[in-house]
Design a protein around this nucleic acid. Structure first.
Lengths: 349, 349
DNA sequence: ATCAGGCGGGAAAGCGCTATCTGACTGCGG
DNA sequence: CCGCAGTCAGATAGCGCTTTCCCGCCTGAT
């Protein structure tokens, strides 16, 4: 077994064949004892196989099993950016649930590039994952959208399950977050505690999630009596730096009479807080800020950020359950959200 | 091809066989044209194969390739907690570099449980990944350590590559972070700007990374002239809540004369800031705080947290390069760190 | 003309498994 | 005492690929 040269023995991992030989049984019996089968195996034989496997440190080759069985134990997860707390929280949920189902998660990052996303879906299809979860919305008017839909449908036709998170552009299973209702509720509450004049910082035009949040916010204001001028809707990257930048631009336009800025997600909100501070103002007091998502950090910034809680990890879990055909997950509607008022929006009454 | 019943045609994905038939060539030629080979294929044939593949929307079955080639394109990544910014930043680096090398990353979370870690390593070995990256240190005196080492060594013997991140307990390739030097430098700088009396909040005893940071900090103080009483070293969970809790305990002991609290990582530091604030004090002014890692959020908390920058994403990239035998990565020593002074430690001179 | 030698397509032998099929052996009713 | 159904180990035919190996063909040197 030892190879000449290095002196370090380099042995290929034990195969089922090795185990069978070591145990003195047939390949079939070894397979049956080690990896469940409907058939019964004599207790004596099974024991011998298990011992042999332990002795040889046997570990079944998942690729070979996948080929033979025609099905894998893999879940593919696509996110925009792994380091973004929004996505890493979702990912944590997916991984936790996958682990529970004895599935393995493979992960890739689209970097918010639709072309890359398409490319990744193509590559990951090669794995024949049981499930494919796509998180993070893409521009509504994306030229590759058709191709992506085509690709995903082909994947479903071949037995795979696709689940989208918070994006229903494509006609596929989706874990829907009620962005509209959440933002609407937020707007009402903010008006309720005395705010009247609002501005919004959001992502690029056409980002579904962002658009829903802004629309919901608008609807809430309309109903409750707040105002939001069209040119007080600032667009920038859907990231922390985008939030910082958007806020800076807003402030540069002169103080104006904006009382509260709604950032379409928390990372932008956090960036906005910093921009306000860097401009020499006091966030909360001089300009109130609210976000969306309730990522872990927002309770630790100062002032703690008012936001709409989205149960991110639960969404990840639910996405996987939905893909696996869990009846409950199917039945539930959009994921409920909850307004969380904190110090970044002190009451004005 | 269409199945009766549902009316929805459900077709298995095209196989290489299908492509070969469609193109009117042999399996071998199809394989050679689609997935590189040393051998040349007639341009005319190659074209026909490529067209046929496109027409059938062929996607090579990676499991089958893995079985046939005896090698995969998979990288396995183990982290303690995916939602923790420390790990998600590292993961982002690994994924980015993997993508660059056309490798696929599978990810699992140990939840900081050594038994689970061992279990996961066993499972993931079944994938026969080319590389296995373990991030996050484990207790030095862990009973399963021997078993883990055994498992990893067996994996290496079978041709795999293990890389550890910031933990060198096991005799394996490691991306080492110079925790000691970083903390030492931090201590010197803090003494330099006027601090004298310190406390530390760190993780459970025996956590290598945490221990190195505390030791380094101590060494720096010893050299520069600061003091740190033994009972001013608080231990708690190595998480945000652990930091909060540790700080709370420290404050409950009465104000004392501690000027600056060094938290062994940023998430603890952020928790500590919140604890200070919740106790009615002003972090930075009443009690200064410093952390370690420079995770993205720390520049957005108030006061912005003084810390030691660790290039987390770069570490992830480097881990993979190291595993793949990149000469540069081999040659480089420990990852350098850099002290970043911010408002949480205003000068006292 | 002749033949060595490259070239490149196709047949087929695996890769490590699972699942179907085969057949030896049991036990039981008639 | 025969036959028949029921068990369960073992042989074997795949799964979707890659990679020899074989062999016909064309080239070009002799």
């Amino acid at each position: 077994m030892a190879e000449a040269g290095t002196g370090i023995s380099r042995s290929a991992p034990a195969t089922l064949h090795d185990v069978a030989r070591e145990a003195g049984v047939s390949l079939a019996t070894a397979s049956r004892s080690l990896n469940g089968s409907t058939r019964k195996v004599n207790e004596e034989y099974r024991k011998r196989v298990l011992e042999a496997a332990a002795r040889l440190d046997y570990s079944p080759n998942l690729s070979a099993q996948a080929v033979a069985r025609g099905t894998t134990t893999t879940v593919a997860l696509l996110v925009a950016d792994i380091a973004d707390p929004y996505f890493s929280s979702i990912a944590a949920g997916v991984v936790a649930e996958a682990d529970h189902e004895h599935l393995i998660v493979t992960m890739a990052a689209t970097e918010r590039d639709p072309e890359r996303e398409l490319e990744l879906v193509r590559t990951l299809r090669g794995q024949r994952p049981r499930v494919m979860i796509l998180a993070g919305s893409r521009p509504t008017a994306d030229p590759t959208e058709g191709a992506l839909g085509e690709e995903l449908r082909a994947y479903e036709r071949s037995g795979g399950r696709v689940v989208l998170i918070s994006r229903n552009e494509l006609d596929l299973r989706t874990v829907l977050v009620d962005n509209f209702a959440g933002a609407e509720a937020l707007a009402r509450e903010l008006v309720g505690i005395g705010y009247r004049k609002f501005a919004v910082i959001t992502g690029a035009e056409g980002l579904r999630t962002a658009a829903d949040r802004v629309e919901g916010f608008r609807a809430g204001l309309a109903a409750a009596g707040g105002t939001l001028d069209d040119d007080d809707v600032i667009r920038d990257a859907f990231t922390r730096d985008g939030g910082y930048d958007g806020m800076r631009r807003l402030l540069e336009r002169g103080p104006g009479d904006v009382e509260l800025v709604f950032a379409a997600n928390d990372v932008m909100g956090v960036g906005a807080l910093s921009a306000i501070r860097d401009a020499g103002l006091t966030p909360g007091t001089d300009v109130a800020v609210a976000g969306f998502d309730d990522i872990p950090t927002v309770r630790d910034v100062t002032p703690a950020l008012t936001t709409v809680r989205v149960p991110l990890e639960e969404i990840g879990r639910r996405a996987l359950r939905l893909a696996l055909g869990d009846a409950d997950a199917q039945a539930e509607g959009a994921v409920p959200t909850e307004v969380v008022l904190r110090e970044s929006t002190p009451g004005r009454k």
